[in-house]
Write a protein that binds this DNA or RNA. Structure first.
Lengths: 358, 358
DNA sequence: TAACTCTATCGAAACGTTTCAATGAAAGTG
DNA sequence: CACTTTCATTGAAACGTTTCGATAGAGTTA
């Protein structure tokens, strides 16, 4: 107690350890200054006069150890300010109780809610969430610093993911389809969303339709585009054109430029994500062309910024939070080897007013 | 080689290990199905016919081991698909090469750029970044899963932080002032920003000024508010009033309601962050009061959404990316025990048009 | 009392590394 | 030739846990 007081005051402490080995007794006496001591299970054992195994059992609430001993040990642990060493524990237990979510970058506009959903579902089940981005961080998975991963990161190749899954790692992928016993997937109903968008244009009497695509490696873009094509084909006399994009704002600007350059009559533009739609708004606001009058736009994602455009963006919405919750639950089931199905997140169209009637 | 092929094909493999101990030779033969084997340094050693220490040295590029042996070991390591065990390594080395950044939540509008800055600075120096949020994740710090932390998380109490710093952990705080050898701080020049805002109002001829505050535990809010008061006092005949807020959108809505309720002439409102300013816009857009005409607003942070309001929000800007870079650099210096000063991030006013002339 | 069964506690191995100190062979020195 | 020196390699301890199997003392039964 007094030592602890000194520690606080002067950042100086000392501790005595005795190792008995091969009949010889070595005694070590060491002082650390300004660095703080690390208290281990061993120190508690010595203080309590019990073996380290008993301490371990007590700390883990095992019923093997008496109520009384346990209480004494716990008290001493607290007194000494014991903090378990995560590395040692996970080395032995081969688990970390940490789940990693891998994102392409930190700027994604809807990550916030998704992460919130993940976080809640995970912490309530005794797991912790860490967010990683960048190719360098991929090592967290194979090096076993996390018990499982949620993938929303195009920089992970599918081959890489399957390799890890083969090694026994559990994954939930949110941005591709992968068939593997250690991989589950929760995908957006992209096709339904794209169909909703095109149908909305048709309902409003539009006949000239553009689609601004995402990068073609993107599963989401592929799916959406495919549904757009199918839907467009269902109708007669539609003028349909695709403009290549990459899900970023500048692509929306470029698309807007192209559209204006070849403008002859009001057009409908389905931007395969909101980000590009926002880029398009940005460019158009500097021209005489008005959204909802000359250029009619639908986006996809319903990100926050799209609420503040004028007119508000009509877009495809889905619950990012639920996406996160579901992903977390499925990953935990995968880890617990419980059987489960792939699931899908439903989408709906939100009419913001960026599509006028023809 | 053939075994590796079989592994890939059938997910079945076997490995033989021999332990020599007290003169007795035990032989273990095990097969794992569908789980993947874990290759350790030991397996490489056996395959290469060298000791595990030599393998370790080779893997770490130590000059102690011959070019030739090293090459052979490295080849075998690759062949066996060796992946180091992070837990074992960090248990022994007492470091993880991971830096954690703690955020209050994942929804913060400017986290993206900040994290980008952090990430770049850290990975270029061989460190990895993980993002954590929520009280549960605080344990990452004391349990030594990270080598240092960047704090932007009001749920960390200052006492808690100082306790950790006392234990030898290195911290950079971005949301408070803390004087401790193991803590460095990179703070916004909040006061300059607040002064800029008020001066701008005065320049534009405003005489009735509101300030919508953040939560009073917030250092940023405190600093900004203090500067507002000081600045307001410098001028004569200012009508000044404070409205309590909490840095979230609904607080902006409430403030707008109050302002409208007591409206008699055009007013200037300094929202201590953009988030609340956006809330205010939202409410006002449903009324007949126009921003920049009846209600003149300045925010703080220059978050993305504020670019899409009409008129665009006048706000206090600063480089979030630079903030991140600086924080990372300082933390690494702190870890390397290099001397360093606290630093400050400069701010500027961006005129978006939400403040009209009186 | 002898032979059990419980059960609280303990000893020791193991997890996969790193790293110090020791070894022994080859090379260099006088 | 006997000696030191050099240096690639090795053995073993250590990091801090968990957990299996052993142990010993108390309680139960016959």
């Amino acid at each position: 107690m007094f030592a602890a007081f000194l520690l606080k005051l002067f950042c100086i402490t000392h501790s005595t350890r005795r190792y008995q080995k091969q009949g010889i007794i070595k005694e070590t006496f060491f002082v650390k200054i300004g660095e703080g001591i690390v208290v281990s299970i061993k120190d508690i054992a010595k203080q309590a006069g019990v073996s380290i195994s008993t301490v371990s059992y007590a700390l883990n609430g095992s019923p093997k150890v008496t109520e009384e001993t346990s209480a004494r040990i716990l008290a001493i642990a607290k007194e000494l300010n014991y903090i378990p060493n995560a590395a040692a524990r996970s080395l032995k237990k081969r688990e970390t109780k940490i789940i990693g979510v891998f994102l392409t970058d930190y700027s994604g506009a809807f990550y916030g809610q998704l992460l919130q959903g993940l976080q809640e579902a995970l912490t309530s089940r005794g797991y912790e969430l860490i967010v990683c981005s960048g190719k360098e961080s991929h090592r967290f998975l194979p090096e076993r610093m996390i018990d499982g991963a949620i993938i929303l990161d195009v920089t992970f190749s599918s081959d890489e993911l399957i390799k890890y899954a083969d090694l026994g790692h559990k994954l939930v992928v949110l941005d591709r389809e992968l068939d593997h016993p250690n991989i589950n997937q929760i995908l957006l109903d992209n096709k339904a969303g794209a169909t909703l968008a095109i149908d909305h244009f048709i309902d409003k009497g539009h006949r000239k339709i553009y689609a601004v695509t995402g990068p073609n490696i993107s599963y989401d873009s592929q799916q959406r585009l495919q549904a757009v094509r199918q839907t467009v084909e269902r109708y007669q006399d539609i003028e349909y054109e695709e403009i290549e994009g990459d899900f970023n704002k500048p692509a929306g600007v470029r698309a807007a430029q192209q559209i204006i350059a070849e403008y002859s009559k009001p057009v409908a533009v389905f931007c395969l994500n909101d980000e590009m739609a926002i880029g398009m708004y940005n460019y158009l606001s500097k021209t005489d062309y008005r959204v909802g009058e000359h250029v009619h736009i639908i986006g996809f994602d319903n990100i926050e910024v799209s609420h503040y455009t004028d007119p508000r963006l009509t877009t495809i919405d889905y619950s990012k939070r639920k996406w996160g919750t579901l992903a977390a639950e499925h990953l935990l089931k995968l880890i617990a080897n419980e059987p489960l199905e792939n699931e899908r997140i439903y989408v709906s169209l939100i009419d913001g007013g960026s599509v006028g009637t023809m």
